[in-house]
Computed example of a mutant assay.
Amino acid sequence: MRDALHLRQPRAVIKGDVVRRASTFLAGFALRLAPIGLLALIWHGLVQGFDIPSRLMPGPLEVAGRIYTGLFVDADLWLHLWLTFKSTFAGFALGSVLAIALGSVLAMNRKLELLVYPLVVLIQAVPKVAIAPLVLLWLGFDARSTITLVALICFFPAFVGAFVGVRSTPAVLLDLFQTLKASGLKTYLHCSLPNAAGSIAAGLQVGWGFALVGCVVMEFIMGMGGAGFLIDNSANALDTVTAVAAMVLLGVLGYIGGGVLSGIRRRIVFWEGDRPQ
């Protein structure tokens, strides 16, 4: 009897822990959805209260129906959204990798910083929309132009995150690694990079939103597919429902991307402490 009771106790503890984690997750999920639900209610109330025609502003139920049809029935919205996601992700990955590498190198080399950093700031100051036609002229009307502009737009947040993070590495730690005769690469990988991980992750989260904006701008200009093309084409055809549905899906894509990056940050930069779920 005692052995059976002893065996049941851990199972009860494990079950209680699972229930607690599940309830915490559901509570956090509901808390995140609450503002979205409130916004949808306000949206519905305004459309109904002011009797706004659907051609000017469709209601949330009408938009939700169009999203369901476009994703799971006709799949026309899905095709355009997938094209936007592919271009955004490719440009975001390219720009982020280059930004982290260059920011780290400049932070560890004072002379190189004096030469290159002003050029980076100068390029960042130029509006990316202004150089979009030149990018199209140089690279052509295909995915390469979109990926390049997205990389340019999301470059600076990750660059600043890497530069500031590596530069703020405590001198005591650097002296310790120097005393241990660690190479520059080992010092960077085991000291400077972990110190900069938090600021790099923050820069990546900001850069993801910028990347989506850059991709949509290029799709507006190119007119060859994607969510940006769909919004522009639908607005010109007075199909407001499709245009708003595409904008909502872009917002969802940005929110999911930011959430994924936030989750990765909590997993990798675990030493920064717990954050509200």
Rank of each mutant, 00 (worst) to 15 (best):
W43T: 02
S87D: 04
F159L: 03
A12S: 07
L79P: 00
A93V: 11
A171N: 09
F229K: 05
V19N: 15
V73A: 14
G226T: 00
F141Q: 09
L33M: 11
L39R: 00
F163I: 00
G251I: 00
I42Q: 07
A34L: 09
G103R: 04
W78D: 11
D274Y: 07
Y255I: 03
R2T: 15
E62P: 06
F72W: 10
V244I: 13
H6A: 15
A132Q: 08
G184Y: 00
G225L: 03
E62G: 15
I36G: 01
L98Q: 06
L98K: 02
R20F: 10
A22S: 10
W43S: 04
T84M: 02
K186P: 01
C154Q: 08
G223F: 06
L136I: 12
G207W: 00
L94V: 05
T187N: 08
L114H: 07
V260E: 01
A158Y: 01
D142W: 02
V150E: 06
S168D: 11
L180P: 07
L253N: 05
T24V: 09
T24C: 07
V105G: 00
I153W: 03
L230R: 14
F72G: 12
P118L: 03
L26G: 07
L180A: 14
I268E: 09
N236P: 01
P194E: 13
I268V: 12
R266V: 10
L149D: 08
M218E: 06
S54F: 10
S192V: 05
F25H: 14
F229D: 13
A22Y: 11
K111C: 07
P118G: 01
S104G: 06
G226K: 01
L152E: 10
R144L: 10
L112Y: 00
I221S: 11
A130T: 05
T242V: 06
T69V: 15
D142V: 04
L189C: 13
E219S: 09
C191M: 08
W271N: 08
V217C: 03
A196P: 05
D232I: 12
A22K: 10
A197R: 06
K15L: 15
D239R: 10
I147Q: 09
A202F: 06
L83F: 08
V63F: 06
A235M: 12
F50M: 12
V164T: 12
S104H: 01
I231S: 07
A197M: 12
P10D: 04
V248E: 05
I200A: 08
L38V: 08
L61Y: 13
S104C: 04
G70L: 13
G223C: 07
I153V: 15
A64T: 12
R20V: 04
A196Y: 00
D274G: 11
V13M: 14
T88P: 03
R66D: 08
G203Y: 03
H190K: 15
S234P: 03
C215W: 02
L137T: 09
L185A: 14
V241L: 11
F92E: 02
A211L: 11
G49S: 10
T88L: 07
E62L: 15
M222F: 04
A64Q: 12
L46A: 13
F229R: 01
V129D: 03
F220N: 14
E113L: 01
G251M: 01
T69F: 14
L39Y: 04
